[in-house]
Write a protein that binds this DNA or RNA. Structure first.
Lengths: 333, 333
DNA sequence: ATGAAAGCGCTAACAC
DNA sequence: GTGTTAGCGCTTTCAT
């Protein structure tokens, strides 16, 4: 494996000049720079990253710790982060915390050890590891959920409002007993979606409060939906707090022979390519995932450049996409 | 940020002893080891990764370069890789090449620069960058697609056979004009799926060969399906080569008012949670993605340990899951 | 069993 | 504009 000295020898210059030339410093003679470039190419020289990072005390890498790689919402965020980071020469490493605080902490430790320039994370719970980042002055930005105990840059969706609007939509469609299936208590987005749901029912003077909380997974939502729908007075519509849960709910409906829209109105968070393919197509609350990623990356870069700037909270809006699964009247014959 | 010297000073020992103690070498006095541990904890010491990697000439990291983070097939592979790698103390960094040879090469360069222990990749095309890995003796394993010009460990699915079985299933259901929508020419999995399709039609003495090739994306498949279905003699069944394409095809069917199963039989590669929710549910060829990941990781670890072992080709089977989208007779009334 | 010291490859003062 | 050189923090001989 050739080193910078090999390149220097070959080009007949010092290692310092090689370093300067390869890093595009303006202070080097164009002729020499060209000779260096050529020598490097001929040798197939690849700079030694660890050596460079050791010397610079920082790697041009940002870590992105998300709670579920298999959730399209988070992968869309990842693409947004990548696109912005790559533009300015940073690499992105994706880490999957799997909604486990332990894995999350482990990845934070690794990020610190590798001296990454910054961390973007969707915190699963208290995120104790963040204290270490703060203590070391490593830049970090939270996405999707705020960090309970730390003032930090954070990019959120106004999910309470979005939930309220979705619920109001169900009310407007004439559904009478609207239920809500949301994620774990304590997870901010899950709590907010329930709060928005209640806001809308209160405003509409509806009495029923049919809430079930489970993991943000299909399996839990499936059971909870079966439970809710087999009550003496079952809901005639459901607000479902994420995409994975929607799968579980729709399965339950299928098993019970209830048709979305006509029998039970359904609105779910997060749009997906398959939502339109269902019969009837699924009404969703589309979150601007890609934009969350780009915005988070921009905030992170700003904080890497200047860690003294005051923390910012960016709140993006969501968009209700009405499809037939929540169109009670139309689908009634 | 405390260094190993700070820990050494605090524990009253040399840096060598700290290093040995923290790396669990047997040759240190238990009492000293405990003192070192405590000093490290008190200081919140985190080893400097770049320094360690520089010294060791290798990082305990494997890079996983996949062609589409948003494709559930690849994220399932990622989970498999992670689970095996973490067991033995390796970290996994996920890189998204986006089916672009250029990004793939860029990530390979980064992997080399960072001196990762090994690389797992799903090659997009010729994968010129792999030559550099080979030249440097960095371990690598291909998944899903073989590397055309390099003998290497590779984990594949017998996708030609799977395509043939899926096509034979459509034949058995009584479909007469079976079409095929596959990925780009030159991408091995896409070619194999077409080959398997032809195998089955030949065996069944069918004459029609209705093949369209597009990107492995919904948009391309959508157009191709519209084209195919508006031919004078349109197909009465379709074999679709991946999940994303299936979305495009089903959209096209919807727009044309053709119902899967009854009007046009459909089988698609890759199972997805939503496949059962469609009406009718989608028949799929389920690939063992998670197992591809675990197997690839195991092969990579073996090769990191011993780069002289002969290259292995591991071929896993796929499983046809019959649902109503390919049940012509049953769905006919 | 422990310590002293060399050196991994690079960058950035500093000197010229 | 270019070269010399120190040193980033760690692991690992080599002594003892």
């Amino acid at each position: 494996m050739p080193t910078i000295s090999d390149v220097a020898a070959r080009a007949g210059v010092s290692t310092a000049t090689v370093s300067r030339a390869l890093n595009g410093k303006a202070t080097v003679d164009p002729a020499l720079a060209a000779r260096v470039q050529q020598a490097a190419t001929e040798l197939g020289y690849q700079p030694n990253g660890p050596a460079r990072n050791l010397r610079r005390q920082e790697a041009a890498v940002v870590a992105l710790i998300i709670s579920d790689v298999e959730n399209p919402f988070f992968t869309a965020i990842a693409r947004g982060v990548e696109d912005v980071a790559h533009e300015v020469g940073y690499s992105v490493v994706l880490c999957n915390s799997d909604e486990s605080a332990e894995k999350e902490n482990r990845y934070i430790d690794i990020a610190i050890q590798e001296r990454v320039a910054g961390v973007i994370l969707s915190p699963s719970g208290p995120a104790a590891g963040v204290a270490k980042l703060a203590a070391r002055g490593t830049a970090y930005v939270a996405v999707d959920r705020p960090l309970p105990d730390y003032a930090s840059d954070v990019v959120l969706v106004d999910t309470r409002l979005a939930a309220a609007q979705a619920t109001a939509h169900l009310v407007a469609q004439g559904y009478q007993r609207i239920g809500c299936l949301s994620g774990p208590t304590g997870v901010r987005t899950a709590d907010d979606r329930v709060a928005g749901y209640r806001d809308a029912l209160r405003a509409a003077k509806h009495r029923a409060r049919l809430v079930r909380r489970t993991e943000y997974k299909a399996a839990g939502a499936h059971l909870a939906a079966l439970d809710l729908l087999s009550q003496p007075q079952p809901p005639d519509a459901l607000l479902v707090a994420n995409n994975a849960m929607a799968v579980g709910v729709l399965q339950a409906l299928q098993e019970l022979g209830r048709r979305p829209g006509r029998d039970v109105g359904v609105v779910a968070f997060d749009d997906a390519p398959w939502a339109e393919l269902l019969d009837p197509p699924l009404t969703v609350v589309a979150q601007p995932a890609y934009e969350i990623g780009t915005e988070a990356a921009r905030l992170l870069l700003a904080r890497i450049a200047d860690n003294t700037r005051p923390p910012t909270v960016t709140t993006l809006g969501a968009r209700l996409i009405e499809r037939a699964s929540s169109h009670r009247s139309k689908d009634r014959t």
